[in-house]
Amino acid sequence: MTDQEGLKTVPHPYPGKLIIVEGIDGSGKSTQLLLLHKWLESKGHKVFFTEWNSSDLVKDTTKRGKKTKSLTPTTFSLLHATDFASRLYHQILPPLKAGMIVLADRYMYTAFARDVVRGVSRDWVRKMYSFAIRPDMAFYFKVPIEVAISRLLGGTRGQFKYYEAGMDMNLSPDLTESFRLFQSQILAEYDKIVEEFSLLTMDATQDIETQQEHMRMLVEDALRGYKPRRGTYGRRTLFWRRFDVPKSE
């Protein structure tokens, strides 16, 4: 499982299914994943959801590092890998081993795109994530930069955040301009990743229902032959944690 080439071709050995979405901010990937989640549940599947940079272990540290602007490209990348490792171990693998469906909002490809644009070595970041498993389905929501910007500025987001706009890279003193330059480079990197890891490209300029219809069709196809585990009516609160971790600070 620590073979770097294996990440591209070798399927994971577990009975569950791992479906992930990728794309830049404003591509609409989270909306699509949410709608897929609803649909899968309505069909009676047990579904677990996990998102980028959300583990208890690392979230606060990343926040603190961002606030003090002390993150370097390397520590930024390492922190996200730590978060990913922790979620893989605690949130992703147990349901997969139990035969359930896991949905992930962003996966290692986010690091391959973003961290490389920030300046870390392309080889290094791939080797670091070699402990990951290959998803059963990986969707890439492809969107032109101007569409993403108008969605984000027109929506609830209002203003871009410092790191999201890549302000740490000194591309432009203007937030929107910096976002445009930074995210354009990420889009170019994603294009290479789509080839390298055979991600499924979705046209994210289409309206929401059309995209979702397409996505559901593809997932339905991929799940043919998959035997869902019956639920136990168990209500989940906390997950696979034997000990309580005190909040840092």
Binding site: L57, S86, L88, P246, S248
Partner: peptide, 17 residues
Amino acid sequence: SKTIEVAKAGNILDRWS
């Protein structure tokens, strides 16, 4: 330093993390 302390106190670490 603080994060590592907290993580070790919580005793939930896998090898990779």
